[in-house]
Simulated assay, not measured.
Amino acid sequence: MWKAGLILLASATGAQAAGCNGAALQFVESAPRDRFELSIGADVLRSVTVDLRGSKGQLIFDTANGGTGVEVFQPLRDEGGTQAGEVADGAEVIKVALRDARAGGRAAFSIDVDDRLTASELGQIRVTGGEMAGASATFETEGGEMLVAVFDGNNRAVHCP
């Protein structure tokens, strides 16, 4: 049974745009830090896991200078409502704990995401929606349920009950 909701941004994006009170995660390509933005919908969430392994862009988290990624790198950083930890350079999966993630609240975190395509639309340093497509987000509810959603070509992962 679905217990938690995550609605993104004040505009009608994410789950609201899909016509449900479900869970959603929005990736925002930006410089120098890429962001994942969320706002809590129906219940309490413990964490969100971002898994880039299925992404069309063969995406990775670029967290260290001279590592797997290209040029700019940024470690995981709390942008409000998360508990940022260490992420290995080149990792494809991260789990971010949420602080006090109750209905109506907001949270965000930032990190650098790069693609590994040889012919990338905007270069490996920037990620397009088509490159994020196929990655997944798993939302863990306070009750331990795992809600899985796959990112679409608009950089959104939406889970509707």
Rank of each mutant, 00 (worst) to 15 (best):
D78Y: 04
E79Q: 14
E79R: 13
G80Y: 12
G81T: 00
G81V: 05
G81I: 02
G81H: 04
T82D: 07
Q83R: 13
Q83L: 12
A84V: 11
G85L: 03
G85T: 14
G85M: 06
E86Q: 10
A88W: 05
A88C: 00
D89C: 08
D89W: 06
D89K: 08
G90V: 04
G90Y: 08
G90Q: 02
G90K: 01
A91Y: 02
E92Y: 02
E92C: 00
I94K: 00
I94M: 14
K95V: 12
V96T: 01
V96I: 12
R99D: 05
D100C: 00
D100W: 01
D100Y: 02
A101E: 09
R102F: 05
R102D: 03
G104V: 00
G104H: 06
G104F: 08
G104K: 13
G105D: 05
G105I: 01
G105S: 15
G105R: 15
R106V: 10
R106L: 02
R106K: 14
A108M: 05
F109N: 09
F109M: 04
S110A: 14
S110W: 00
I111L: 13
I111A: 05
D112S: 11
D112M: 10
V113L: 11
V113I: 15
D114H: 05
D114N: 15
D114G: 06
D115A: 01
D115K: 04
R116I: 02
R116P: 03
T118E: 14
A119K: 14
S120G: 04
S120D: 10
E121D: 10
L122V: 02
G123E: 07
G123M: 12
I125H: 12
R126A: 15
V127I: 15
V127F: 05
V127D: 10
V127H: 09
G129P: 09
G129W: 12
G129K: 05
G130I: 01
G130S: 14
E131A: 10
M132C: 09
A133Q: 15
A133H: 06
G134R: 13
A135D: 10
A135W: 11
S136W: 00
S136Y: 05
A137S: 12
E140S: 03
E140T: 14
T141F: 11
T141I: 06
T141V: 10
T141D: 13
G143S: 14
G144I: 11
G144Y: 10
E145M: 02
E145P: 03
E145R: 12
E145A: 11
E145H: 08
